[in-house]
């Protein structure tokens, strides 16, 4: 699997006639199994970028290719996890996990098996018949992650999925996500505005400028996993990224 983002730009029409540049000429090539974080300030168009990759929006120019196929609509190879309102509140945890399989007409017994497997992967065995409102925010996010995984996509797109959680839960889920990533060998494209999160998770960090967002720098993070947030090496990378986003070339366009 290779995911290529090529000369991608996006403009919005605001109030009928004002044209706003949201993204300008993004180029990124993502290899199979990579963990990529897209880091940028609020309003730089990183969510828009992810939505275009997901096939939910069309770019103004340029294209996204997955294994040489142009993406212009949702594609079964791509799964997505949203920041908010991720689960269907009228469905139990099991039914949420099985949702994608149900749409594909997978037989019931098979769905139950898959659901069981992913419930375990999420560390939520025993919560299958619970409803989303009975779970904490962190647990809901775990369900959302495995619901996306249940249909076995090659790439997971994650839009600030841990943004609304408290720091402890957030750290825990980052850790668990890496474990799931390691087990399932998925490619992950993860949008965040947290430098700490990006350095902890990513193989490479794609730093975007403010609007119109374009790639300022792609930083490889060569720290071995599991990463220690308190280590000197971690702090060095973190420092580097923080310095970078304050430099004129990354903070102005």
């Amino acid at each position: 699997m290779t995911l290529i983002i090529e000369h991608l730009s996006k403009q919005f029409t605001k109030n009928g006639n004002d044209i706003v540049d949201s993204l300008g000429d993004i180029n990124v090539t993502i290899q199979d199994g990579e963990f990529i974080c897209i880091l940028g300030p609020s309003g730089c168009g990183k969510t828009t970028l992810l939505r275009i990759v997901a096939g939910l929006e069309n770019p103004t120019s340029g294209k996204v290719l997955i294994d040489e196929t142009v993406i212009d609509r949702p594609n079964p190879k791509l799964g997505m996890i949203f920041q908010d309102y991720l689960l269907y509140p009228w469905r139990t945890v099991n039914e949420n996990i099985m949702f994608g399989l149900e749409l594909r007409g997978i037989p019931k017994e098979e769905m139950v098996d898959v659901s069981q497997k992913y419930l375990e992967l999420a560390g939520l065995s025993g919560f299958g018949t619970s409803y989303p409102y009975e779970l904490s925010g962190g647990m809901r996010q775990r369900v959302a992650v495995v619901r996306a995984l249940a249909v076995d996509p090659s790439v997971l797109l994650m839009d600030e999925p841990f943004g609304a959680l408290d720091a402890q839960t957030r750290n825990r889920l980052q850790h668990d996500l890496l474990e799931i990533w390691d087990k399932t060998k998925k490619t992950i494209l993860f949008v965040t505005h947290s430098v700490d999160e990006a350095v902890f998770l990513a193989d490479r960090i794609v730093v975007l400028t403010p609007r119109p967002g374009h790639v300022c720098e792609i930083i490889p993070v060569v720290l071995t996993r599991p990463r220690d947030r308190t280590s000197v090496e971690f702090a060095k990378v973190r420092r580097y990224v923080l310095d970078l986003i304050n430099q004129p070339k990354c903070s102005f366009s």
């Binding site: 949702p74 908010d84 269907y88 009228w90 749409l103």
Partner: peptide, 28 residues
């Protein structure tokens, strides 16, 4: 909610399935 519909689209739902699996139970 729009994200409920989009989440279904991402998971491969067709218009009819969005109606039966998302719109109807969501609006019920």
């Amino acid at each position: 909610k729009k994200t409920w519909i989009e989440a279904a689209e991402i998971l491969g739902a067709r218009e009819r399935q969005i109606l039966s699996h998302v719109i109807l139970p969501g609006a019920a």
